[in-house]
Amino acid sequence: MRIVVCIKQVPATNDAVIDPETKRIVREGVQAILNPFDTYAIEEAVRLRARLGGGVEVLAISMGPPRAEAVLREAVALGADRGILLSHRAFGGSDTWATSYVLSQAIRTIGNVDLVICGKQAVDGDTAQVGPGIAAHLNWPQAALVSAVREVSTQHLVVVRMHEDGHDVCELSLPAVLTVVKGINVPRVPSLKGVLAARKSEIPVWTPEMIGADPAKIGLDGSPTRVVRTAPPPPRNKESLRFTGTAEVCAGGLLRELRKRSLL
């Protein structure tokens, strides 16, 4: 049995620089990190491997430029058995449809995969669409926003899903795709052994041909959506109102203002 964790390298800050030509994010020259939600996905995979006993392999995969290899090494340091980088010019400009297609093709190619775990969303795009997209491409069941895995076997999972006003518990047959939230675990700090393993680990680079990807379904041309325009957000009202003085005066002033703006 194999567990695949899909991870992404994201810019460390949200100071976005946009290529005026492609309207896509410029990733060169910006410090890059492992998407914060993905650390929970890696940790959960490593914990499930332990709960399932022997014979389970955890693989981390990522689509991105060559330097995204760094997050795969980080995944190995955090306990993944190995990493695979999906990197090729033809993957560039993929939207969430094309990205989830590429990842699903890699999962098919890896073979013997029973569980895919993704972070809830990547903090640069914030779409949360790739996890369910992979499930749809594979035609596997999915559970989004998982905050706990109550039961696990090689056949099924019982998971807790977060909702706006509470949670539910559901049983899924494997193979399946999960997206996980921060509350699910506390990720470990890489061990010395992990760091050494990460340094030595071979990270193969897979191309579209190696995963049997249809060229018409990948990259900018294979993506249904296109960014046509980017702009700074509308400026906030710069005139801010300040209350100082006693608590009574401040509270009174604030309440008056809220009522004046019909906000209370």
Partner: peptide
């Protein structure tokens, strides 16, 4: 919503079309 953001990406892939979030 939590439901919409789980459901619609699945539908978009299955009907082979584009989806924009949020």
């Amino acid at each position: 919503t939590t439901r919409g953001r789980a459901l619609i990406p699945r539908v978009a892939v299955q009907t082979n079309t584009g989806l924009t979030a949020d």
